[in-house]
Design a binder for these strands. Structure first.
Lengths: 205, 205, 205, 205
DNA sequence: GATTAACCGAGACGGTACGTCTTGTCTTCCA
DNA sequence: TGGAAGACAAGACGTACCGTCTCGGTTAATC
């Protein structure tokens, strides 16, 4: 006894179509923006029947998500964060790079589109968290744990909160355009996060 | 020198229609979600011609924004943040309230909808920043400046960065569903932001 | 006891507006065709409020009808048909002139528009018959009666049927584009109508 | 060399939708009149997407035309005109039947609507002439040619002019409501057309 | 090697919403 | 109060996509 609606057989899947769909989706959202992204358009541009998209993805967001996934896999996954022994310098370098990426029009629109879909689709959000966000977060936590071992960070720190504290402000300002997104801003966030808002007891900063 | 396309005359505007449209927009997005929000639907439910919507608002997002604006004005604007003299306690209280609001289904969907419209529409983002975000941010900064005067915060602190540090992680986790959004999480963020990630010099807490 | 909706007082009517509306209506239908004729457009082009149109005319067709009426009155009404003593020659001349008018793009579209409005609006049809069609028909009948007196037409002829027989085929072919509308065709119709379809008894024509 | 805009594939066409659209169009125009005929309304009543109408017909008039075409094909096409050997009697009978049809409200409005569309759309007029008018005209001409062979009509008669002479006045009076449309009128037209307007040479008629 | 089942491209289908246009009514303000 | 101006509710216009479906034409695994 099994489901009536038989799932498609992944073995027979056309990889050419799959890749065409995903890269077309990424291209289209970059060119025409979030509003200009349609399954109709993806299928037409990719030279693919609409059914082929609907057969393998449940939603436009899922296509977009897979497009990002393919991109990240094709580029060999994410490397570890730099670890020079100077946490502050390393974080500033990483965040400055992130700022550059977020300001790059080639990535800005697609990422906004993906985030929008995630914000409205819990299933997609889960997939995103597990497949893309968590691996990146683990890299960040690895670096922080290394800093903890080096005594640069409090021993009793919750690494997840720490990651949120460092990256959250940046992403938030980017998404909602709550001010210019510059490397300097990133640096000030890192410093503030590391030192904390309260005055430090000892010698002046 | 001015545009050919003369803007409609605000003096002749029907306030009844305006309010009907705005509250309908808010209701609809709450009931049917972001995807279920259409100008067609708003006009129909509000008993208003579609043209009346298009005459006064350039986009669906602008309607939604005005709906929030009306809501905030009708509720008499935002009051100052509590100031008991204990910054940490005050911030925890405020953020816990924010968490409750974000978890309230009546506000969750509409706010997501507004935020995603903002994310894709720079004009709307500017309006949001100026009319809604900045006033709230000023209240937050007032509280932080009060704490600075009381010696609870570093004197050379950039209040904008401070606000981002405290509220950014929360909003980010909410929007992207990057984990459960609880009062405890809010509290941990406040503590981490105030103390900083680095070990404090003295005996420390 | 009388109607609630008081009719407007014709004495106060602005003649400038009236004339502007009528000539604009005629121009517009000539330029943009029947489909491009709207009360909105007439009012805008004539520099007149929409209400001024609605106040004085019950329908788009009525405006168009009045436009024709004004035109025919401004051109001093219709003169009598030529009467040289040779009925056939006179009819051919008149019908050839009619053919030329119907083929003139300046009159073709407006007349089509008026005729189709008439076809769908009995009130308008009545007004048309009484104010425009009947006067012209009387002129035609006058010429035919003159021919009857001269022995050129049967004494017991119904002049209305005769007029229909001569002009009907022409108008019909014009409206439905049932073939090229030429002076020769008009001539053949006149000859056939005068002689009849049956063979003539004697040596024949 | 051919058009870029590829026409839809007729093989895939849904005959059920096609027939639903056509009969709905005919019904609607009969019920609500020409003004009450909209593609929106046809699609809704026929249980069909608007795009299905737009895909297969270029205009409202084309739908209406096809509706008439289907009607005439479904009723097995037009039979030959009666030929009892007495042309006058046959013509009177046919025209009386036509008068009845034109006075039948079930056909009056739809035909007016079709004629209106034809009057304003040359393409449609061409289609009408070729597919509906010409076949009917051939039947009429057949009957007239039979009469010519029987010596009832002039040998040198142009059958097209003859048809126009007989049917033109009728159609014209119907369309423009230029007087009551009765069987008697039809009879008087037939007699006048056959005998001609001129006095006949021999014994009185 | 033939069968056969599923994928493929294509695209028609019933729908929903878009943003624009026009309708006929109503209101405001000017002369 | 007539007229210019134009906002209003209503709804049709023609277009773009939605997600489902059906059609032949491959294509790959099974017999």
């Amino acid at each position: 006894m099994h489901a009536v609606r038989t799932d498609p057989d992944p073995a027979r899947r056309s990889d050419a179509s799959r890749r065409a769909i995903l890269s077309t989706a990424f291209d289209l959202v970059g060119e025409a923006g979030y509003a200009g992204l349609s399954i109709e358009g993806i299928a037409a541009r990719a030279g693919v029947g609409k059914q082929t998209v609907y057969r393998w993805w449940p939603s436009k967001g899922a296509v977009l998500f897979d497009a990002f996934l393919m991109l990240s896999e094709d580029s060999g996954g994410s490397p570890a964060l730099p670890d020079t022994g100077d946490l502050e310098a390393d974080l500033v370098a990483v965040l400055r790079a992130t700022v550059d990426e977020l300001n790059d029009p080639r990535y800005d629109e697609p990422m906004r589109a993906l985030n929008t879909e995630i914000a409205h689709d819990p299933d997609l959000a889960r997939a995103y968290t597990e497949r893309l966000e968590r691996p990146m977060r683990e890299l960040k936590k690895d670096r922080l744990r290394s800093a903890q071992r080096a005594g640069e960070l409090s021993a009793d720190l919750d690494p997840d909160v720490a990651v949120d504290l460092i990256w959250g402000p940046l992403l938030n300002r980017w998404m909602l355009r709550g001010g210019e997104l510059t490397g300097d801003y990133a640096e000030r966030v890192v410093v503030a996060a590391l030192d904390g808002l309260r005055p430090r007891g000892g010698a002046a900063d």
